[in-house]
Structure formats: C-alpha cells, structure tokens
C-alpha cells in the first residue's frame, strides 16, 4: 500500500535528559567555529580555484596571517574539550560489535545494534581521529608558520611539514564532514549541543546504556 497510516495517541509523555552543561557547549562551538574558519582559510591557499575564499578574510595576506592564529585558538579549545570528553570515548566491546554491524548503522536499523553508552563507535573514531590530526596539524603548522618560526628547522623538514599539513587537513575535513552529517542525519542531536538536553526517546534510541545510567543517577551530566 502506498499510503501509510500513523495513529498518534492524544497524550504523549515527554522526558528530557541533560547531556551537556553550558561550559561544554561553549567549548564545543568555539572549537567548531575555529575549525570552519581554518578550513576556509586553509583551503583558500590549498588550490588556486579556491583562492577567492581569501576575500572572506580581507585578502590573501590577511588570510595567511590569521590562519595560524585561529589554529592556536582551535588547539587550545580542543585541548579543553579533550580533557572533558576523553573518558567517555574509551573503546569497549559494544563498539567492536557496532563497528562490525556498520551496514545496519548506515541503513538506520538501530534496533539490531547493541545498547550503547554515551557515545557510539563512530563518534569515538571521530573523537580520536580529530585529536590525532589536530596534534599533527598544530605541530606541522608551527613549522610552516614562517612569520615567527622561520629558519628553526631545515628546509627539508619545512617541505615535509607543508606536505603533512595539507594531507592532515584533508583527512580532518573528511572526518568533520562525517561528524556534521551525523548530526544532521540523527534528528534531535543538535539540541544536545545547542540547548544542553535531548529527549528521553533520543537517548533510548541511540544511547540506551547511557540513559539507564542517567536514570539511576550515576551519570555526571557531561
């Protein structure tokens, strides 16, 4: 039948679960905003066809000058985020199972997956991946930050750093695309980071173990 009927009960109970305190939200959005700015200013220098992006920053020289400073903001902000979140991102058996069932994940068959804690394996991979890449980007970025650090290492190291920085940047951008799309696809996620809470149903569906521990009262709310 081409028409589906959905009957809605008149009264539906609603629950809300606290997911992120304001400090974590602010921390996240500073990180996200600097990442976007870094992507735009970095890609402007990456390929001639994207040089027009320098107009967003007031020209090529300004883009060149701002980019590394935004990188410093990102590195500081992400460090705080890392200290906040790393414990929740440790790998466990459920994550291995989840990864094996990636087909069900992508198809949205969540009922077939194990119950999950605060984060799923995909989120954990994005977490550790970006952490590693930001370290690499920061280190290689300092080497090619000619304005302040020229001549500190050999020209060969400089060339290597430029290559590594651009490769790591592409990898990081790809990871962030996955991260952003996951937020768009899984409805009800964004409010966790904008308002601090999610609906109980969202938690039940995607992070049931976490919901159970929150209900018991031993979640720390972060």
């Amino acid at each position: 039948m081409a028409v589906e009927i959905e009957r809605r009960p008149l009264i539906v109970e609603r629950t809300e679960v606290h997911r992120y305190p304001a400090s974590a939200r602010v921390n996240h959005w500073i990180t996200a905003f600097s990442f976007i700015l870094l992507t735009l200013s970095g890609l402007a220098l990456f390929h001639p066809s994207l040089f027009f992006l320098t107009d967003l920053f007031g020209g090529g020289a300004n883009t060149r000058a701002f980019h590394p400073w935004i990188g410093v903001v990102l590195a500081l902000s992400f460090s705080v985020l890392f200290v906040r979140f790393w414990k929740h991102n440790l790998w466990n058996r459920d994550d291995t199972q989840w990864t094996k069932q990636i087909g069900d994940v992508v198809a949205g068959h969540e009922e077939k997956l194990p119950e999950l804690g605060k984060y799923n394996a995909g989120q954990k991979m994005v977490f550790w991946g970006t952490a590693l890449l930001i370290v690499v980007l920061f280190a290689s970025g300092l080497v090619i930050w000619d304005e302040y650090f020229h001549g500190l290492v050999s020209i060969g190291t400089n060339r290597l750093a430029a290559l590594v920085h651009s490769l790591a940047a592409i990898a990081a951008i790809l990871l962030i695309i996955v991260h952003i799309y996951a937020g768009i696809w899984v409805k009800g996620s964004v409010r966790g980071m904008t308002q601090g809470n999610v609906t109980g149903g969202w938690a039940w569906r995607h992070h049931r173990k976490w919901l159970r521990s929150e209900v018991k009262g031993d979640g720390d709310g972060h």
Partner: peptide, 25 residues
C-alpha cells in the same frame, strides 16, 4: 552524505522511543 539522506531518510526518534524512555524514567 546528501544522497545517503535522500535514500535512507532522516534517523528519527519515534513516539515509542519516547514512551519507553518515559517508562524507564
């Protein structure tokens, strides 16, 4: 990503999920 969304559709929380959560609470 765009076509994934086009094919699979949004991953929505159902009313049943909300009910179950309320029960659990």
């Amino acid at each position: 990503a765009f076509f994934h969304h086009t094919i699979v559709g949004p991953n929505k929380v159902s009313e049943t999920d909300e009910e179950n959560a309320a029960d659990l609470a």
